[in-house]
């Protein structure tokens, strides 16, 4: 990537450096980076530093005056807190269920099927799936709330089909938010996989077909191995996106009823602002941040291998 961007050393560099010492020159060249470095330092690195610090204090919403350093107390508390463990479990269900299984599989299936579909059908699928993705998070949450509501569309469909109805948002809220996240987020995976499938050399699949491989074999033995890199990258990205979903869940259920759909971001928010336990909330935020950082590191590792 960098090869095409760098001027050969010595040609235009020399001309510009006339009369300017090299150190000053490289400072001058880096100057346009300053606003971004400042903004990132103040608004991202700053809060992350705060996050690490506050996570070890007993800070409350009322102010910093009574804040004490408490060591690992918040973390010890978290790992003995049934609500926290519940939130970890629900987050795992949410991420694995809606992203790793839901969005990833559905996105891949749609992308594969769309390659074989008639053109108008392809446009329709593209249109509606992407529409759900473009809508603002809160609107998507509202629509899904209405869809799963006890007197909502889903139940009227089920009753028309003579299937048992459910009060989805009360009996199975985590399933409802998972399906909502699949509805909202699949477009991303679909687009990633459509692009990836487009890069699979046609000769490969055709050669396999000549050798007598059926469609399933072609898919699992040829296509999947070729696009495995895209699958990995996609998995990292949708996991990161799903980990930080707040608005969708909060609009639909507010984590309830009780704590039955309380994923980590919702739990964190409620501890910090409704129970006024900023220190405890921050400790949970730190856990979330570390998990996110881990996935993010794996993700750039994947890109790096490709880059070098």
């Amino acid at each position: 990537m960098s090869t095409l961007t760098t001027a050969p050393p010595g040609t235009d560099g020399d001309r510009r450096s006339r009369g300017v010492p090299p150190a000053a020159q490289s400072l001058l060249r880096g100057l346009p980076l300053l606003p971004s470095v400042l903004l990132l330092a103040v608004f991202l690195a700053g809060p992350i530093g705060y996050c690490v610090y506050y996570a070890f204090t007993d800070m409350q919403l009322t102010g910093a005056s009574g804040t004490h350093f408490t060591g690992f107390a918040n973390f010890t508390r978290a790992f003995h807190d049934a609500d926290f463990l519940n939130a970890v479990w629900l987050t795992l269900v949410f991420v694995v269920g809606s992203a790793v299984v839901g969005q990833n599989t559905l996105g891949l299936a749609l992308a594969v099927l769309m390659e074989k579909a008639a053109k108008p059908v392809r446009s329709i699928v593209n249109g509606v799936v992407i529409a759900a993705w473009v809508l603002p998070e809160v609107v998507a949450g509202y629509l899904m709330y209405a869809f799963f509501y006890s007197q909502g569309s889903l139940n009227s469909i089920l009753s028309a089909l003579h299937l048992p109805q459910q009060n989805w948002l009360y009996t199975l809220p985590i399933l409802a938010v998972c399906l909502a996240n699949v509805w909202r987020g699949t477009a991303f995976s679909m687009m990633v996989f459509s692009a990836a499938l487009n890069d699979v050399p046609q000769e490969l699949t055709e050669a396999a077909e000549m050798d007598g491989a059926g469609p399933w074999q072609r898919f699992f033995r040829v296509t999947l191995p070729v696009i495995r890199r895209s699958i990995l990258t996609n998995l990292m990205l949708i996991t990161l996106q799903t980990l930080s979903v707040f608005g969708l869940v909060y609009t639909m259920t507010r984590g309830g009823p009780g704590n039955k759909s309380q994923t980590l971001p919702v739990f964190m928010y409620q501890q910090a602002f409704q129970n006024s336990l900023i220190g405890y909330g921050t400790a949970i935020a730190l856990v979330l941040l570390l998990v996110g950082a881990l996935f993010s590191a794996v993700y750039i590792r994947l890109l790096k291998l490709e880059d070098d």
């Binding site: 960098s2 990161l240 930080s244 935020a285 979330l288 993010s296």
Partner: peptide
């Protein structure tokens, strides 16, 4: 510094902004 800076940028694109909101609030 170019490569480390770019990797930091790429790394930050993945960080869950949701998680920093409480410290941002305190700040």
């Amino acid at each position: 510094l170019r490569r480390p800076f770019l990797y930091t940028i790429l790394f930050s694109t993945g960080l869950p902004i949701t998680a920093v909101m409480i410290p941002v609030y305190s700040m």
